[in-house]
Design a protein around this nucleic acid. Structure first.
Lengths: 156, 156
DNA sequence: CTTGATTTTGGAAAAAAATGGATTATATTG
DNA sequence: CAATATAATCCATTTTTTTCCAAAATCAAG
């Protein structure tokens, strides 16, 4: 079975809680129920199993211990610290998105529809509008790429 | 579980006291309840566990051990001396920000809303306004980065 | 050195928010 | 169309946060 695939339309309640589909739940719990929420610059919230996140985190490890004594170093720490939070999936299969993360991803204060997108190594939470926009953006990019490939095939 | 992560909206009272969230409190107390307050040039106050701060300071010392025999050396000592203060977290999980530090970070005299930002090795205290500005600055940087990446994908 | 005033500190009570669970609604499958 | 499974809403309980008050400590003036 492929893990973390497909798209779910579901809802986030006024307390920021999201119920995972049984399929996604299973994918998470098979790696332990510790997860990491991470605000993506794209304007969505990513959810990874903790062990997966730790690997990602290592790849962009900060050089040396000088981190806290320079502007850039502090900014990097701030970036990854502020927009990351670990959590545990509840007994009812729900996760709670913290206030600041909800704002980042464009979720209002009431309960509303949203989209959970599987991204193979975890899932991403999007508002319906932003997901639609992202889909369009990806398609445009692909179209451009197609044209380039066709063009360069002619030039050989 | 990741330490010192996430963002908390909370408040500072008219005496400069801030209540830490249980999550952050736990992260501090696991390293002993001695902490160091440090005014950042970014216009916020950083809070590190004492042992973490000592490491940061050591790194800085290596860079310049001219100490008290030059203008620059004295200025560095003055800088870290004046804008650093050690303290202990109270039994109620509160810390008190000294008057001078409050002014540095832009906190007025009354009680007001503020933001506690996790930075992996400690936390930072920001006024709401300054944190919003800092967020925008980081986001702009990310937007530029995204455009570059997309562009270079087309040029392969 | 003593007294009075002001600031700081700790604690408790009230308010707000988050959590868990259960019931109701919706959708899906046979 | 009915039965089952899944999702969403609502409510009660607990936890957390904030405000307020009293006690202690510090400081200043006499």
């Amino acid at each position: 079975m492929l893990a973390f695939c497909g798209i779910d339309y579901c809802s986030i309640d006024s307390n920021g809680r999201v119920k995972l589909s049984p399929r996604n739940l299973e994918d998470f719990t098979s790696k332990g129920s510790d997860i990491v929420l991470f605000c993506l610059p794209e304007g969505a919230v990513a959810v990874y199993p903790e062990e997966t996140y730790l690997k990602i985190r290592q790849e962009r490890e900060i050089a040396g211990n000088r981190a806290a004594s320079s502007f850039l170093g502090r900014q990097m720490l701030r970036q990854s610290g502020a927009w990351t939070q670990s959590q545990r999936i509840t007994a009812q299969g729900r996760i709670t998105i913290p206030q600041a993360f909800r704002e980042h991803a464009g979720f209002g204060s009431g309960s509303q529809k949203m989209v959970i997108v599987g991204v193979e190594i975890g899932v991403e939470l999007w508002t319906v509008e932003r997901w639609e926009a992202e889909k369009r953006r990806m398609q445009e990019h692909d179209n451009l790429k197609r044209e380039r490939e066709m063009q360069s095939d002619l030039n050989i």
